[in-house]
Simulated scan of single mutants.
Amino acid sequence: MFPTTAVRAGWHRGIIELRQTFTNAQELFGQLFWPVLLLVALFFMRDSEFSDTGISLAALALPGVVGMTIAFNGMMGMSGSLAIDREDGTLLRAKAIPHGMVSYLVGKVVTVTGWVVAGVLLLLVPGAFLVGDLALGSAGAWLTLTWVVLLGATAMLPMGAVLGSLIANPRSQGLVMLPLSGLAAISGIFYPITAMAGWLQVVAQVFPVYWLGIGLRSALLPDEAAAVELTGSWRAVETVAVLGVWAVAGLVLAPVVLRRMARRESGSSVAARREKAMQRIG
């Protein structure tokens, strides 16, 4: 199998997994539950105004909600899928096929990217009608939205792959969830970062979640909303730079970590994990 064939096979694998996600009632419920819950929260926030800006809390919150959907679906989706496939032997079978890891990774990227895009659309389309203060009437806004979503997903997915290769099993997902929730709390995703302590503002700006949030706000909100940001501007250049650095670092590191993880996989290790899982069920 040539690498191009492996990439093609991975693409088809990802499409099949996406189709299974959106035709399986249990998985479809999992995809819809949080977006619907968040939309309900936005509905009740739509009449509340933030300070004297004239912008509703719902409008300020929607970009953050979309940003966290990208971060959580990207990181948790990728790390969770890797942990599950590692435990049930899927990864070992992929390793045994020529260029199988290439095909496997392409498939996972396609699947998780599909989850990210679906989550964004599930929030953004009805959210635009609920909120009403969004500035999506220009081609520039849609262009900004597109590159922020794509660059943000590119920064998050490799991080999820690295973390997924490090956790022992799917039940260890809390090791990914806790730090990601902490980043969400300090990154101004749901509330302007200017209301937080100065040292927290510095820490938040090191990580991609803050920049994902400000990038989405620049696409979805009117220009006057930039007044509540740290510098009173959308900082587009810095957003591209920081998200780009995280994306490049992840794309360089993830294949190295995944290759090391794959080398450690064996029939005996998969059997041992299955036995432990059966003991927990029993």
Rank of each mutant, 00 (worst) to 15 (best):
L32I: 07
F29S: 04
S51F: 02
M45W: 02
L28P: 02
F33T: 11
L32N: 04
P35S: 09
V36N: 11
L39S: 04
L38N: 09
Q20W: 01
D52G: 11
E49W: 00
P35W: 00
S48C: 03
N24R: 07
S48K: 10
A41K: 02
T23E: 04
A41Y: 05
N24G: 11
F22V: 12
L38Y: 11
E49C: 01
Q20K: 08
L32C: 07
A41I: 12
Q26W: 00
D47P: 00
T53N: 10
V40K: 05
N24Y: 00
S48T: 12
A25C: 02
F29M: 11
E49N: 08
F22M: 06
W34C: 04
N24F: 03
L28N: 04
N24L: 10
F33I: 05
A41G: 12
L28V: 01
R46W: 00
G30T: 03
V36G: 09
S51A: 15
Q20H: 07
G30D: 04
L28E: 04
Q31I: 07
F43E: 13
Q26T: 14
M45A: 15
F44W: 09
S51G: 07
F29T: 07
L42V: 09
S48H: 11
A41S: 12
T21D: 08
T23S: 14
T21V: 09
V36P: 03
A25Q: 09
F50M: 07
L28S: 13
T53I: 07
L38A: 14
T23I: 03
T21A: 14
V36D: 07
L28Y: 00
